[in-house]
């Protein structure tokens, strides 16, 4: 039997062979744009078919009104303040507990069950509980964000730490590298991908948490404002806020996390270009 190896083209040849319009159409950007266009058309169709689905025009109208009244910025300022504190706490606590869990079997045995419990409790339960505990203020959205996000960070980081190469750990201990440097130069870079994935989860799930807590708490914020329109039976206003929620997450993910990931993995990209 003879295997044939197809003739392959060099990267330079490939680049010149494909016409530019086909390169644009076949690009990842084109795939993204296609999604947004399809989603928009679907929305228009649904709004035309059902009375209780507000159409794009009325939603844009509500958005403009909310912006002009200053509601958007003041409420998001509140929400972001709570969200940022909650996520930051969950990342700090999550990375520390995750590293300890990854390094020590005892710590793993101790934390395994509470983390599992934490993973299985939905944000809405924490939102109810914290409003009961802390009443209407900043504490309940902050604590809800923290409690929903922290188990995800812990699980990811612990997994990353357990995966740190045994060979590199042996190398470090044979040279007597001090613990602090080992954590900084070996453990953290090795787990940075996992930390990043954990923080990304924390942000998305924490965003759920903060909005839910605001929905049930009575102290302002984006979640509270969405509920205001919902209670008033104004679906266009409600939908306007839902859109804002989504936009925030997408922007955060693309602007912050894409960049962080690219920086954390420079060494890998450099080795393949």
């Amino acid at each position: 039997m003879t295997a044939t190896i197809p003739t392959r083209r060099s990267t330079e040849e490939q680049a010149s062979a494909i016409p530019s319009w086909r390169r644009v159409l076949g690009s990842e950007v084109a795939a993204r744009v296609t999604f947004y266009v399809t989603a928009f058309l679907l929305w228009v169709a649904l709004a035309a078919a059902f009375e209780r689905v507000p159409g794009p025009l009325s939603v844009v109208d509500s958005l403009v009104t909310e912006f002009s009244r200053g509601e958007v910025f003041s409420n998001f300022a509140d929400t972001f303040y709570r969200f940022t504190i909650g996520v930051a706490l969950s990342v700090i606590v999550g990375v520390v507990v995750g590293i300890v869990m990854g390094l020590s079997g005892l710590a793993r045995a101790f934390f395994e069950s509470p983390v599992l419990v934490g993973l299985s409790i939905p944000a809405i339960i924490w939102a109810f509980l914290t409003v009961m505990w802390f009443g209407f203020g900043d504490a309940s959205p902050i604590v809800t964000t923290f409690l929903t996000a922290v188990p995800f960070v812990i699980v990811n980081v612990a997994q990353g730490v357990q995966g740190v190469s045994r060979d590199l750990r042996d190398m470090s201990s044979s040279y007597g590298v001090p613990l602090g440097r080992r954590v900084r130069d070996l453990v953290l870079p090795a787990v940075s991908g996992y930390v990043l994935a954990g923080v990304r989860f924390a942000v998305i799930i924490g965003w759920n948490g903060v909005l839910l807590a605001e929905w049930f708490g009575g102290s302002g914020g984006a979640g509270f404002r969405a509920r205001y329109w919902y209670d008033a039976n104004q679906f266009a206003g409600f939908a306007a806020w839902v859109i804002l929620f989504v936009v925030v997450i997408v922007v955060l993910d693309q602007l912050v996390f894409e960049r962080m990931a690219r920086r954390a993995f420079r060494w890998r990209d450099a080795a393949h270009s």
């Binding site: 060979d167 590199l168 042996d170 040279y175 130069d185 870079p189 090795a190 060494w267 890998r268 080795a271």
Partner: peptide, 15 residues
């Protein structure tokens, strides 16, 4: 003080 040349390089890939 010990120096160890391993059978494989064992370098930190991110440094």
């Amino acid at each position: 003080r010990l120096g160890y040349v391993f059978q494989d390089p064992r370098l930190l890939p991110w440094r």
